[in-house]
Design a protein around this nucleic acid. Structure first.
Lengths: 241, 241
DNA sequence: CGCCGGATTGAAGGTACTCAATCCGTGTGG
DNA sequence: CCACACGGATTGAGTACCTTCAATCCGGCG
């Protein structure tokens, strides 16, 4: 944790792992990119289970995931917890905290991971100078809102197997966008965590996995998954009412 | 619909119906507020059932609700619909559209309503000049993300009666913030719409209302609701696992 | 080897859904 | 003015789906 790295690493991140495409506006010139990179004063490393931030903690920065993955979760006073998202390389995390200046959820590393810290005050200053950065920041926040709407649709109106199919297809798409295999991957989260995210119990998730396998849609063994019939999974979503 | 009104009306809105407190940064001087008001070039009126915008429609403006209320809903290709929120006076609507330049949900008037149109390009230009407006815009977007997280918690882990209790308490709080009675109000939405929002069927919503009434927590008759025991409703949330 | 946590599977139970009948308030037309 | 139709709301009975509880399995690690 807290391993600081030279500032130029963010720039490297931009070119070598899709971070640029995913996080940064495409129409900045080299100098502007440099300004943006300079703004990230540190990169930090986290191990599985480490907290990037905790609910209630003071807000200061957004974080761009440089490697690895995280989950975000909100906690209810009665102890219930709900996983609100799984974030992977190139995604921005911490937007929830802007409104109250305190984090409203926990962010926990699912594996050994690195993040680029983006001090929000500096980001605001710079985005006042660079309209395309400003617009991009707005788009990132808006995209988060749209993503949440999709999850609300899932949680509010889909059956268990539909939810899992949507989840797998979403992962598939995100892996593909990063140049990884869209059909074969390792899950970084437990059945429990998937269940929390999808509004299901872990046993239900496990059963749905098994059913998919029995139907020939996927191969699954613990956390390694192979999607055999993407079309079949797609067909499953929204099929039965 | 499309009734245009003089620009100064937005300013009136600021002072006479809490719009200022709810939507606008508090630390702008008079001149800056004027700039902001000038940016809103029109106010529009809608009747119950009218669409403020539709999913897929081109994005141009955010809308500040001046009077009345709206619902937002996302539609799935198979016809399922999910209400993603109910918006009332002083709230900003349309943030979802920034990321793709097209609306990703429908906004429908629940009653006769008026909105102030806020052209987003102009808002961005102005917020580059006014840091406190910039920050405020970010906060509004962040608040929407936090709100959505709360709904995910509700949809993912609460039982039917808990969901309805949360819903009623949330309405109560929002009415109170507008100087209206927190314990006695008229619902603007049908059981069907409440159910869609809460991930329940309308019959389940109706039964939960009846149970609350039988327990002496509320009085309910069709769409008029009186909350008798706020503490009882609070206790209900998160009580049983 | 044996423990441990995570994952799978089975059986029983509960919550919310489905289907259907009825009620109620509003608006319309005879 | 009343009858009627209509949509929304309520209520009941039966069912489906997911949860709960519990046992077992499996792989990794001390």
């Amino acid at each position: 944790m807290q391993r600081s790295v030279s500032l130029t690493r963010l720039k490297i991140a931009c070119s070598d792992c899709n971070l640029r495409e995913l996080c940064l506006p495409v129409d900045l010139n080299a100098q502007e990119i440099q300004q943006l990179c300079d703004l990230s004063h540190a990169k930090h490393a986290y191990s599985r289970g480490d907290y990037l931030y905790r609910s209630g903690g003071k807000f200061g920065s957004l974080y761009a995931i440089y490697s690895g993955s995280f989950k975000t979760q909100v906690l209810h006073e009665d102890g219930r917890e709900q996983v609100t998202g799984f974030q992977m390389v190139g995604e921005i995390i911490g937007l929830d905290a802007i409104c109250t200046d305190r984090h409203t959820c926990d962010a926990v590393a699912l594996e050994n991971s690195e993040v680029c810290e983006l001090p929000f005050n500096k980001l605001e200053v710079l985005s006042r100078k660079l309209p395309s950065l400003q617009r991009h920041l707005h788009k990132i926040m808006s995209r988060e809102i749209v993503r949440d709407q999709g999850i609300m649709l899932l949680l509010g109106s889909m059956r268990a197997e539909e939810r899992l199919a949507v989840f797998l297809l979403n992962l598939s798409q995100r892996f593909a966008a990063r140049g990884l295999s869209p059909t074969q991957f390792q899950l970084r989260m437990s059945r429990q965590e998937i269940g929390s995210y999808l509004g299901l119990k872990l046993e239900t998730v496990s059963r749905a996995f098994s059913n998919f396998q029995d139907s020939g849609l996927i191969n699954v063994k613990a956390r390694s998954v192979e999607l055999l019939e993407l079309s079949g999974l797609h067909a499953l979503v929204g099929k039965q009412q």
